[in-house]
Simulated assay, not measured.
Amino acid sequence: MKVLGIESSCDETGIAIYDTDKGLIADQLYSQVALHAEYGGVVPELASRDHIQKTTPLIKAALKESGLSFKDIDGIAYTRGPGLIGALMVGASIGRSLAWGLGIPAVGVHHMEGHLLAPMLDENQTIDFPFVALLVSGGHTMLVEVKAIGDYRIMGESLDDAVGEAFDKTAKMLGLGYPGGPVLAALAEKGEPGAYDFPRPMIRQGGLDFSYSGLKTFALTTWNSSTKTEQVKANISHAFQEAVVDTLFIKCKRALKDAEAKRLIIAGGVGANKRLREKLQELPADVFFPPMKYCTDNGAMIAYAGALRLQAGQTEPAEIQPKPRWSLEELNAI
């Protein structure tokens, strides 16, 4: 089965074609980072308009890359949610209409399920169920117990800022630009260990929920009361990153114990963070990461997740119904 995947939940337009026999055979991605940079964050209206302009050309590019035509496509998968409603509407409208016109099945994919399954795109690693997944991105931070595809239990999640959001906002406070998360992480490598000691939020009271708004405020207070030098900026970046990574490490260790699991999957944009990857390797478990290019939003993860559901016989009526708010626990197991 050859499945065309469309990702348009936020500020990346991703198109891919996944062949259940041959694997990923086309992958196209356009990032809107430059478009939103001057505003210091994603502008939903601009994001939607850009998806409208880029989706169809990228579909044509993916077909050309794979050597296929529309008549060779067996199914369409698109991101149904969660995400920005306008951006989701673009992908859902194009995907569902294309499937109707071609007379083939379509399925709306949960964005976070796509991230959760992204490590399986790496043909060099085999991941067996069950496992615990740490989903860390600009919009989500959560720990999920995964017994099978679609059989999910949310063990803990952020009560305020997601990890990626906290990185970007802290970077903005330090004048590092947008998106600032990767810049802050790079600057942290130049920081002096022990120069500052930042708190580790919500680790003493137990549980698996996260909170990063207070840590972000602590970083701002520290910066405002310090001498404004590049080394101080690097030291704050280092202290902030260490606090975030330590918190994630502690929560992952608890989650593995709670689920009695021996495998941990990391997914989402923050999964590309070098320090996080190093630290989580210390856990008493097998730890899996997606290929670096599949950490951020992409069409490949949507095509793959959609292919699994279409193969299992899941289809949907010819309706366009994006879901900007959608819990993983609402999905059906396959």
Rank of each mutant, 00 (worst) to 15 (best):
S9T: 13
C10V: 06
D11E: 11
T13A: 03
T13D: 05
I17L: 13
Y18Q: 03
D19T: 04
T20I: 11
K22H: 14
K22S: 14
I25A: 05
A26D: 05
A26M: 10
A26C: 08
Q28T: 15
Q28G: 11
S31D: 05
S31A: 10
A34L: 12
H36T: 01
E38Q: 14
G41A: 00
V42Y: 10
V42H: 12
V43S: 01
E45V: 04
I52G: 02
K54V: 08
T55D: 09
T55L: 15
T55W: 10
P57Q: 08
I59F: 14
A62W: 00
E65D: 15
G67P: 07
D74C: 05
A77M: 11
A77R: 03
A77S: 13
Y78F: 10
L84V: 12
L84I: 08
A87M: 02
L88F: 04
S93M: 13
I104Y: 06
V107P: 02
V107D: 01
G108S: 07
G108A: 03
G108H: 03
H110A: 10
E113H: 09
L116R: 01
D122T: 11
D128G: 09
D128L: 13
L134V: 10
L135W: 06
V144D: 04
E145F: 14
V146T: 10
K147Q: 12
G156N: 04
G156R: 06
S158T: 15
L159D: 09
G164H: 06
K172W: 00
M173A: 15
M173T: 15
L176Y: 01
A188P: 04
E189Y: 01
P193S: 04
D197F: 14
D197E: 14
F198E: 10
P201R: 07
I203T: 13
I203A: 00
D209M: 02
Y212S: 06
T217P: 08
L220N: 09
L220G: 01
L220T: 02
T221I: 03
W223R: 13
N224G: 06
S226Y: 03
K228C: 00
T229Q: 06
S237C: 01
S237V: 00
S237K: 00
S237T: 00
H238R: 15
F240L: 01
Q241V: 07
V245D: 00
I250K: 01
K253C: 09
A255V: 13
L256Y: 07
K257H: 12
E260V: 00
E260M: 06
K262N: 13
K262C: 06
R263G: 05
I265R: 04
I265W: 05
I265N: 08
I265E: 07
I266M: 11
G271S: 06
G271H: 03
A272D: 14
R277C: 12
E278C: 13
L283P: 09
P284E: 12
P284D: 08
P291F: 04
P291T: 09
T296R: 07
D297A: 11
G299C: 12
G299A: 09
A300V: 03
Q311V: 01
A312D: 09
Q314M: 15
E316Y: 07
E316V: 11
E316G: 05
P317L: 14
Q321P: 05
Q321F: 11
P322W: 08
P322S: 15
P324K: 02
